[in-house]
Design a protein around this nucleic acid. Structure first.
Length: 171
DNA sequence: TCGACGATTGCC
DNA sequence: GCAATCGTCGAG
């Protein structure tokens, strides 16, 4: 399978997030074993003006990676027990990321990182060159149907930002 | 330094 | 309905 390259990730998150649905997430473990999963659900977080995006609080040690060019991994801990897997998108200086919410056979962002053994050590991982995590174009080039819904768990962001249809689900 | 809170999950 | 559990960030 062909690995996605820089030009795929260095675009606006609203282009990348829906296109990641249907792509193949590959995890290579220390013992050399590889597991592939079809991405089924994503969410877009876009810039400092997006009150649901962590970057809305500005540049901090945690959000730093989101300010880099697309293709890096942003991982953070939520509720003290779940790691969230995100893909940085866009150009340098424009904080954006896509939360990977679902894989085929794995429903829920916390379950994804538990299944794939992804933790803080993946913060800043480069999907373009990593030998333990990357994303590929699927072999079959069939068209994929996608539906858009509001993002989950962001009520704190206020009516406008919480209602935007920035969650993308494979039909 | 301290305390409130969270892009979730699973059990009561 | 709600507890688990801890890094992050803003307040003091």
């Amino acid at each position: 399978m062909r690995r996605l390259t820089e030009s795929f990730y260095v675009r606006d998150v609203l282009e990348v997030a829906p296109e990641l649905v249907g792509k193949i997430l590959v995890r290579r473990f220390d013992d050399g074993r590889e597991e592939c999963y079809v991405i089924t659900e994503t969410e877009a977080y876009r810039g400092e003006e997006d009150l649901a995006c962590h970057a809305s609080k500005g540049r901090t040690p945690r959000t730093e990676i989101m300010y880099h060019r697309g293709g890096y991994v942003y991982v953070y801990l939520i509720y003290g027990m779940y790691w969230m897997l995100n893909v940085v998108t866009g150009h340098d200086g424009h904080p954006q990321a896509v939360l990977i919410r679902g894989l085929e056979g794995v429903s829920g962002p916390g379950k994804i990182t538990r299944r794939l053994q992804i933790d803080k050590s993946f913060y800043g991982e480069d999907l373009l060159y990593s030998n333990r995590l990357w994303i590929c174009e699927p072999e079959s080039i069939g068209s994929i149907e996608i539906e858009a819904y509001p993002r989950i768990g962001v009520d704190y962001a206020g009516d406008y930002w919480k209602n935007l249809p920035w969650r993308f689900v494979k039909k």
